[in-house]
């Protein structure tokens, strides 16, 4: 009995030692994680803080410092009145350009991708696999390869220096990705569903609307997020094919950074960067969980 008691006391001591070790290791792990997170977030914090500081303050205390004042002037400036490309209207025009470019291009390329994916997975025809392989090449093709051909095409169809032209470019450039996403997702939808629907008298479009699309929200959300952020953040086509007022916000941002006036206006630049980054951030914020879910849902059906 006494022996048993001391035995259990021994085990208690053992257990509390294990608990303490576990606690220490947790503290170390979370401490390290916090440090890494802080390092990762530091640039963002600097930009956010600078967007609320005044320019004289930045000049006096340096780029990296805690704000001593808090004002929205830089945001208004960047949005409304900052002088860019010879006009003092801020970036709002470019922001709207980006919206008018990104939204239609995202919707059209996603719809075409869904339709392509549907055909390439459920209505295969002679050579459809080869066609799909060719479309896949587009995924690996760097955008700059297409610069010259696009310049020629946009010129000949009269869409140079216009948002509509950029929509066209992004729709076509995006089809490879959207088709790949949708096709791989649709492949996992059982063919028997299509056969049953055909016997039930449904045709190509009815099967698409009534059976395929209702099963597709996970992949459509993934595709929309992918396309939206990709097109919004795209810089090369924007800066090459448009100029001045027609530029999307990424190109305007570049102009803002390269603005050769006497002083570098770090406050306005910070606010401008944040304005430009906001839509993709919001998209991730609201759709991020679907994004992760959708990517894995495609894999395991």
């Amino acid at each position: 009995m006494a022996e048993a008691m001391s035995d259990s006391a021994h085990w208690d001591a053992e257990a509390s030692r294990a608990r303490r070790n576990h606690f220490i290791s947790r503290v170390v792990i979370y401490g390290l994680l916090l440090i890494f997170a802080a390092i990762y977030l530091l640039p963002l914090a600097v930009v956010v803080m600078n967007s609320f500081r005044s320019l004289p303050e930045i000049a006096e205390h340096g780029l990296i410092a805690f704000p001593r004042s808090f004002e929205f002037d830089a945001w208004f400036d960047a949005w409304n009145s900052f002088c860019l490309n010879g006009a003092c209207e801020g970036m709002r025009g470019n922001f709207y350009n980006s919206l008018w470019m990104t939204i239609p291009a995202t919707i059209i390329s996603t719809m075409l991708g869904a339709l392509n994916g549907y055909i390439l997975s459920k209505w295969r025809f002679k050579g459809s696999e080869i066609l799909f392989t060719c479309m896949l090449l587009g995924v690996f093709m760097p955008g700059q390869v297409a610069l010259m051909p696009w310049a020629t095409i946009l010129g000949s169809v009269g869409l140079s220096n216009s948002t509509a032209g950029l929509v066209l470019v992004h729709v076509i450039q995006g089809i490879s990705f959207t088709t790949l996403f949708c096709r791989n997702y649709f492949v996992a939808i059982p063919d028997d569903l299509i056969k049953a629907a055909r016997i039930d008298g449904a045709g190509f479009w009815r099967i698409f609307y009534k059976i395929i699309l209702p099963l597709s929200p996970p992949i459509l959300i993934v595709t929309v997020i992918w396309q939206f952020t990709g097109i919004w953040n795209e810089f090369l086509f924007g800066v090459v094919f448009t100029s001045g007022r027609e530029q999307p916000i990424t190109a305007a941002l570049f102009a803002l950074a390269g603005n050769q006036t006497n002083v570098r206006e770090y406050d306005v630049m910070s606010a401008g960067v944040l304005i430009a980054a906001l839509p993709p951030l919001l998209i991730y914020f609201f759709g991020g969980k679907y994004f992760v879910r959708g990517l894995t849902a495609g894999a395991i059906k």
Partner: peptide, 21 residues
């Protein structure tokens, strides 16, 4: 004659029920 006009009905091994309906 296309399947829908053959006056047939089919039961599949996987049942092929439309999952969203």
């Amino acid at each position: 004659v296309p399947p829908k006009d053959r006056d047939i009905a089919m039961v599949f091994q996987s049942y092929a029920l439309y999952p969203t309906m």
